[in-house]
Design a protein around this nucleic acid. Structure first.
Lengths: 212, 212
DNA sequence: GTCTATACTGGGATAGAC
DNA sequence: GTCTATCCCAGTATAGAC
């Protein structure tokens, strides 16, 4: 039935769960194997090393989560809704905290080029999804031509990772930050809704300041 | 001369250096002691545990970096300059990457309440400094009353941490994101510069959307 | 092909030397 | 008060059993 070994799957799930509960610094072949309920040495048999298991788990889990959230993202029509979907993803029990896992892997990738390759690819799945939403949401906006949407998507993704980590040390502050971003999203919408006169003045100002 | 033991200082410096070069998952009493050039057991004599050393090092290093950057922050008059100072801080060799160190400690804090207390306090030093700048920069802005500056300061700090981690796996993408934030800062300035008519229309729109 | 027993290295912590 | 020698456990990895 299953093309992929059952033990392999157990180890991948165990790796994700271990990162969630123990963080990147608590990850080892032993802790993962204990969580997965298999012998520790199987990590090396099936994946060659802990790094390689983490890389694989990172991709599989992120792929699954992005796919699961795609329908919701497809329905997003405003920046506020995008933010709300992000908060949902952040708090959601369903896909068990992919952002949390990614944040830990990202931290671990800073001094590990091998892992960096995998987390970079996983993060790209998110930024691509976010970019698609932004292109759609900002299609009719005058702001569209003034901002690099790809760069904005990357900033949004990075911001969510940062907020995830922030929340771990200051939950109240993180909520406060997210609420403020909500206000900011409203502001952008408002700029979109300016009348034609103000809009023209707006564009002119942008050109002037940008050429500074 | 020195009120604080020389070995203590060596260990604190060694801890910071080890986090920078090996990341949070490469930190141990042994690696720190090797970097510091002292016996491994001295970590436990002087600080009781590795966690406690990290907590202390986190506070000392962040305090020193914030103090070193305060004069530069005091000179900031626009959002773009704030962003530029952030980029400088990020790349700067001088205070040897406090953001990088904080990002790693933040990741390690997610599953360690003790460490979370210290990194939370350290991060608060940054958010307070950023908030002061924002209050000053936005003093004359119509946007001021529509945004929670404290929340914005937290979002900015979290964003920088996120971008630091992002850079480790995708340096080009991180630069792209920062460039886009620069464009966004211009946009906000532009809104500030709107004439009185557009400004009034703007406020009205904000109220309408916000009450949604 | 899958897994266990086992070897070896590095990590946290302390008892006790100086 | 300061530091070293030493203990024991957790970590990676492999040789070889099934």
């Amino acid at each position: 039935m299953d093309a992929v070994s059952e033990t392999r799957q157990k180890l991948i799930d165990g790796a994700v769960e271990t990162i969630r509960t123990h963080g990147i610094s608590g990850v080892s072949a032993r802790t993962i194997a204990t969580t997965a309920g298999v012998n520790q040495a199987l990590v090396f048999y099936h994946f060659g090393s802990v790094h390689d298991l983490l890389s694989e788990a990172c991709m599989v889990h992120t792929q699954a989560t992005v796919t699961a959230y795609q329908p919701r993202l497809d329905k997003v029509t405003t920046l506020q809704e995008l933010l709300a979907t992000g908060r949902e993803l952040h708090a959601g029990q369903a896909e068990i905290g992919n952002v949390k896992v990614l944040a830990q892997l990202l931290a671990g990738s800073q001094n590990d080029p091998e892992l960096a390759k995998a987390t970079g690819a996983a993060l790209a799945l998110w930024t691509t999804a976010v970019e698609q939403v932004l292109v759609r949401v900002m299609a009719g906006s005058p702001v569209k031509d003034l901002l690099d949407i790809g760069g904005l998507a990357r900033a949004v993704s990075a911001g969510f990772v940062g907020l995830e980590l922030f929340e771990g040390v200051d939950p109240q502050g993180a909520r406060q930050a997210l609420d403020t971003l909500d206000q900011l999203a409203v502001l952008v919408e408002v700029v979109d809704d300016l009348g034609p006169v103000a809009r023209r003045a707006f564009r002119a100002k942008v050109k002037r300041v940008a050429d500074r």
